[in-house]
Each structure stands twice: as structure tokens, then as C-alpha cells.
Design a protein around this nucleic acid. Structure first.
Length: 420
RNA sequence: GUGAGUGUAGCUCAAUAGGUUAGAGCACUGGAUUGUGGUUCCAGAGGUUGGGGGUUCGAGACCCCUCACUCACCCCA
């Protein structure tokens, strides 16, 4: 036969990452903080499938958005259905509400979720193909007070996970009544400067003039400053909404910046939009972004209820969350000989039943070796079990920090370890 | 999708101008010490130099392709 084929190492696919135990511990910490905070505000977790009908995102996220046009993981299943791994979460929640008629139930329509999203982007710092978002959504609350509430909640979250220096940007993008007028004015105005813009911006004049504000070319920025601002074109309703939103932010004593050029990338946003940015993240500087989407449910053929929410990038957030080395709290059980091994297993079972974390290894090793491992793993306690201990039914308990050691019964062992 | 840069042990990095068997520190395994850890000493294991092809007497180094990562564009969380 031909020479055996070379083994090719199978690696995690592009844009995906393993979250190894040390890192996972940090994820858990942040997730727990987030979950309990959201619950505190009356939000409840909702979990939906990781893939949906492709059509859901085409309609919900928007046919013209980059996400739908070029970034979706879409495939056909064996039944011939076109499915898509969710690139964002909002359409899934909207779908679930309509499907289960959640708006007719007595529960509040406030939801949160943490999980993976998928976009076929070119990976770079802060941007991955499988990434994770925290998602928060409120439905059927028109009042601008709720807009401010979720911004405040987001700010509290960052505070609790000790992220410093994030800036809060807010804006209003108007509604279906006032946005067309603004678009027209913007386009006409930009048209006057067409020759002065970069090639990209010239194209944007025709496709999506709002995007001109995102351009980083100095000349374009210069011109952009003189272009009309959405703020000056808001209809009465949107203007009042925005003013009240701001007054509630002031009530919360939250510092923020009105960023008239803040444009959210998805088509469905109306009125309030906001974004938290950090200068420490590089080009992908948005930690979270969100806004109001008052027309989405109706457009889905569902009830005419409004919505507002935000998505937060976990990978980006975790870059900013300081590491915390929480001390280990487990008991390392060292044993010598077969009789002691069985005794060690029983002691481990006993302690675990009592809610004490313990660690036991089954490979026969010298005591010095075992103490060395206990130390290396950071165990604050070591228990030593040999033939004598089995006979006496009492064990050597060693404090790995002070080096003190004493003989204890099973019950004394438990109380000593617990009271530490 | 576009452009630029970088890939050597698990990690951080060496290897004169292309020249023998690719080295070091940390980490890992074992021993000194078979009932006592952190220090020390000794030893071991670990690499087709990201992968493939080419130039050459000879390639970790040079050329081409490819893959991955990084940074930026684009876009977004």
C-alpha cells in the first residue's frame, strides 16, 4: 500500500476559540454578575434555538444590512429547509413572542440572554465568527423612562464587573415619519460636496448617506460636520421622546454624550440609539450597542408593540474586565497504599456530600510528590491518609499555607475545613 | 471581501551572511527525599521550524502557493 497519509492536525476553525478552564472561570463570574443584575431589574432569561429559518433574519435584520447580505452562516438541512445560525438575537426573541403570544400572558416582556452568535466576518481583534453576546430586550414599553433604564442597567453592569473608562453615546435616529425628510436633506446636502468626498463616501451618498458619518478620512469628517443632523429634523413625537430620555438619564446622574452621528448598523432602529465605547479596544471599540425598534413586531405580522434592547459583545467586555484571582477552596486528599486509597475515596465522598470541594488523584505517588501537587494546584488544605490513619480512623489535616498539621477525626476535619 | 505584517518546544524567545545533530528560560515528568509541599541540585521527555512545493552540494532562513494569527479598511458586539 502507499505510505500512510500524513496526519493533519485538526484545529479549531477560523474565527472560533476554545474557552479554556482558567478563562471560563472569568466568563462564569461575569455571567453570574450579569444574570443577577438583570434579574434585579425584573428581566428573565429566554433561550431560543441557535438556528432559525433564514427568512427570519432576512426580514428581521434587514435584506440590505451587511449581516444578511454577506455575513450569515446559511445552510440547507436534509429536509430542504434554508436555515441560518443566528447572527444576532433580537429577531429570535420577536419570533418567540409572536409564536407563543407572550404579550397576552401576565408576565412582563423583559428578557435577557447570553450565548453564541455567528457571523462570517474576517476575524480580527474583537471580531470573531463565533462570538458571544449578552442580549437584553424590553417590549411594549413606549415610555422613554425605559430607554434610560436599560442604559442605566448597562452602566451598572460595567461598574459591577469593574470596567472603567467606557463612554456612553446616545442619539435618536427618528422614526418613519421624520427620517425620510432627514434622509432627503442629508442626501441633497452631501450631493453638493460629492467631488470632495472619498470614493467610499461618494458611493454612500447613493446607498446609505448616514454612513458618511462613520468615515475616518479627515476631509470627509470635515465636511460631515457641516451636514444636517438628524437631531434637527426629529418630528414632535421623537423630539419629546429624546428630551425625556435625556432627562431620565440626568435623573440617574449618568454621564453621557449626545453623538448626533451615532448610527446603528441595523435597519430596524427607531428613536433612541446608544453605544458604549472604550478606547482600549482598538478599532472594534463598541462594547455594547442598542436602541429602540418600534416597528419590527408589526413588520413581522405580529402585534403592534414596540421594543428596545441592546447587545453586548462578551469577548470585548472580557478584554476590559480585570482578572481576579479568587483563591482556591478545595481539599487535596493524599493517600498511600490500597487500603488508604479506598479510605480516601470514602473521605472524598463524605466531604462532597457535605458540600466541600475536594480533589483526589488515583495514580500512586509518593507523599512528597502529592504534597507538591497540592501546593501547585493551590489547595489551602491537604489531608494525608496512610495505613496508620486507616487503622485509627483519624487523619492528618495540613494547612498548606501555614504548614500546621494536626490529627483529626472525620467530623473534626469537616468543621475545620468549613470554618476556614 | 481588500491591504500590510507575523508564524521556531505547552509559553516567552535564540540560532553569525544559506553550513554539522535547531538551543535557552519558564512549565511538564521522574529522582535526590519510597510519611510531608513552596527553595535547591540532577536527569528525562517534548520540534517533520504552521503545511505543501521550489532554488541550492546544503534551507528555520531565499522564492511560490496555502493555512493560521495580528493590525487596519469594510462592518459591527
Amino acid at each position: 500500500m502507499s505510505p500512510s497519509p500524513k496526519k493533519r492536525q485538526i484545529a479549531a476553525i477560523k474565527g472560533t476559540h476554545d474557552i479554556l478552564p482558567r478563562q471560563a472561570r472569568k466568563w462564569q463570574r461575569v455571567e453570574e454578575i450579569a444574570n443577577s443584575l438583570f434579574e434585579l431589574y425584573g428581566y428573565r432569561e429566554i433561550r431560543t434555538p441557535i438556528f432559525e429559518a433564514t427568512e427570519l433574519f432576512q426580514k428581521g435584520t434587514g435584506e440590505t444590512s451587511d449581516i444578511v447580505m454577506k455575513e450569515m452562516y446559511t445552510f440547507v438541512d436534509k429536509g430542504g429547509r434554508s436555515l441560518t445560525l443566528r447572527p444576532e438575537y433580537t429577531p429570535s426573541i420577536a419570533r418567540a413572542i409572536i409564536e407563543h403570544q407572550l404579550h397576552l400572558q401576565p408576565d412582563p416582556l423583559r428578557f435577557y440572554f447570553i450565548g453564541p452568535m455567528f457571523r462570517y466576518d474576517k476575524p480580527q481583534k474583537g471580531r470573531y465568527r463565533q462570538f458571544h453576546q449578552m442580549d437584553v430586550e424590553v417590549f411594549n414599553e413606549k415610555d422613554p423612562a425605559v430607554d434610560a433604564e436599560i442604559v442605566e442597567m448597562a452602566a451598572r453592569l460595567l461598574e459591577r464587573v469593574k470596567v472603567k473608562g467606557a463612554e456612553v453615546l446616545v442619539n435618536s435616529v427618528g422614526c418613519r415619519a421624520c427620517r425620510p425628510d432627514y434622509h432627503l436633506a442629508l442626501r441633497q446636502n452631501a450631493e453638493k460636496h460629492r467631488k470632495e468626498f472619498c470614493a467610499d463616501c461618494q458611493r454612500k451618498i447613493d446607498t446609505n448617506p448616514l454612513r458618511i458619518f462613520d468615515c475616518k478620512v479627515a476631509a470627509c469628517r470635515e465636511i460631515a460636520l457641516g451636514l444636517p443632523k438628524i437631531i434637527d429634523y426629529l418630528c414632535e413625537e421623537c423630539q419629546v421622546h429624546f428630551d425625556q430620555f435625556r432627562s431620565y438619564l440626568d435623573l440617574y446622574e449618568l454621564s453621557y454624550k449626545v453623538e448626533p452621528f451615532l448610527v446603528r448598523g441595523l435597519d430596524y432602529y427607531t428613536k433612541t440609539t446608544f453605544e458604549f465605547v472604550s478606547t482600549e479596544l482598538g478599532a472594534q471599540d463598541a462594547i455594547l450597542g442598542g436602541g429602540r425598534y418600534d416597528d419590527m413586531m408589526k413588520d413581522f405580522g405580529g402585534p403592534d408593540i414596540c421594543g428596545i434592547g441592546f447587545a453586548l459583545g462578551m469577548e470585548r467586555l472580557l478584554q476590559l474586565v480585570p482578572d481576579e484571582d479568587s483563591p482556591e477552596k478545595f481539599v487535596y486528599i493524599a493517600w498511600m497504599g490500597d487500603a488508604a486509597k479506598k479510605e480516601a475515596v470514602l473521605i472524598a465522598r463524605f466531604l462532597r456530600l457535605q458540600g466541600v470541594e475536594c480533589f483526589i488523584e488515583y495514580k500512586s505517588r509518593g507523599l512528597g510528590n502529592q504534597m507538591g501537587r497540592a501546593n501547585k494546584f493551590g489547595a489551602p488544605w491537604g489531608v494525608i491518609i496512610g495505613e496508620d490513619e486507616v487503622k485509627k480512623q483519624s487523619y492528618q489535616l495540613k494547612n498548606m499555607v501555614t504548614g500546621e498539621q494536626k490529627e483529626v477525626t472525620r467530623e473534626k476535619l469537616l468543621t475545620a475545613v468549613r470554618n476556614d
